[in-house]
């Protein structure tokens, strides 16, 4: 008897699990025609188009947790990684604009990925709603603390530099390529499979330099294993106030990563207002504030027009810089 009971329970559990994806994709069409005035009546699906455990995943979970209360519904996170966020992003933008499907998006997908991959179906900044902007993350140029390079000048004067990046089409790659091209350094780019392996390579002195996010490098800087030389932002970072910007050093290279939340175009007015309010409230949450501090992220909180303009400007700027320096990422 107990055996059949268990079996039934297992089957029931399996059935429940297998139904989930169907419900998530179907996007049940709401019965009411009053354009979402009672929104939200059920849980909101938040697609994180990156693997669990990474910066994109963590910030999404932190902000989603804070937004649940003001939204009055739970927010369910699903990781859907692939192609620097294009897979999950496109899927959400193609879903029905009812406010139940939102996704995290990153600036690099709009500003840097086009330099690397030709994609006629790429997401355009005008073809999405920006629910809220979230954070800005700066890239810092670091060398192994045991290396002889004390300043950016030392590094760019080296006869040859091998620099690590977190991969093709990352801000770390672009910032270093622009820096070394601009300085006329003989430098070779060595892309790794993510930020952690790149940091590992620098710790093991396999490479000479690395440009990585503060989240990736800060613990090693604090431990005295890596030495920061410059930061690729317009102003010095609050987290590394003693580190000069590349600009101060005479290299006009500004590259950063920014994160925001998008939704399909055509959200009913009531829905987009509700979402915006909920996330505005979430950004004031104290646990969210602590999270940002712990992970060395700075707030980037602007209107959606400003955000859209920033994405377009950066894309244009990076493209012209790449052309000017003859940088070819595409092959």
């Amino acid at each position: 008897m107990s055996e059949s009971y268990t079996r039934r329970r297992v089957l029931a559990a399996l059935a429940a699990v297998s139904v989930l994806p169907v419900a998530a994709c179907g996007g049940v069409k709401g019965g009411s025609d009053d354009a979402g005035s009672d929104y939200p009546t059920r849980a909101v699906n938040f697609t994180v188009p990156f693997a669990a455990g990474g910066s994109g995943d963590l910030i999404s979970r932190a902000v989603a947790k804070a937004a649940e209360k003001p939204l009055g519904q739970s927010i369910v996170i699903a990781n859907k990684p692939g192609a620097n966020g294009a897979v999950g992003g496109k899927e959400v933008l193609a879903s029905s604009p009812d406010g139940y499907n939102i996704a995290l998006a990153v600036k690099s997908l709009f500003a840097i990925t086009p330099l690397v991959v030709e994609d006629p179906t790429a997401i355009q900044p005008d073809k999405m709603e920006i629910v809220t902007t979230l954070v800005q993350e700066d890239y810092v140029l670091v060398v192994n603390a045991q290396s002889p390079y004390q300043t950016v000048e030392d590094l760019v004067k080296a006869p040859s530099v091998k620099y690590a990046t977190a991969g093709v089409g990352t801000g770390g790659q672009l910032s270093q390529a622009l820096l070394f091209k601009g300085a006329g350094t003989k430098a070779t780019d060595v892309p790794f499979d993510g930020g952690a392996p790149a940091v590992t390579a620098l710790l093991g002195k396999q490479v000479d330099a690395l440009s990585g996010s503060l989240a990736e490098t800060m613990e090693h800087i604090k431990a005295g294993k890596l030495r920061p030389l410059a930061i690729f932002s317009t102003e010095r970072s609050e987290f590394l106030p003693e580190v000069p910007t590349a600009k101060e050093k005479g290299y006009d290279v500004v590259v950063d990563q920014r994160r925001f939340i998008i939704a399909p175009v055509g959200l009913p007015e009531a829905v987009s207002t509700k979402l915006e309010q909920a996330f505005a409230e979430a950004r004031k949450d104290s646990a969210y504030e602590t999270f940002l501090k712990d992970n060395y992220m700075e707030r980037w909180e602007v209107s959606d027009e400003e955000a859209r303009q920033h994405l377009k400007d950066s894309a244009a700027q990076f493209e012209s810089l790449a052309q000017k320096f003859g940088l070819t990422f595409k092959s």
């Binding site: 455990g53 979970r61 989240a215 712990d294």
Partner: peptide
């Protein structure tokens, strides 16, 4: 990598320290 994230969420950055 996921455990790394879990530690970060707890405010304990994994590292030499």
């Amino acid at each position: 990598a996921v455990l790394f994230g879990a530690l970060l969420l707890q405010g304990i950055p994994p590292g030499p320290q």
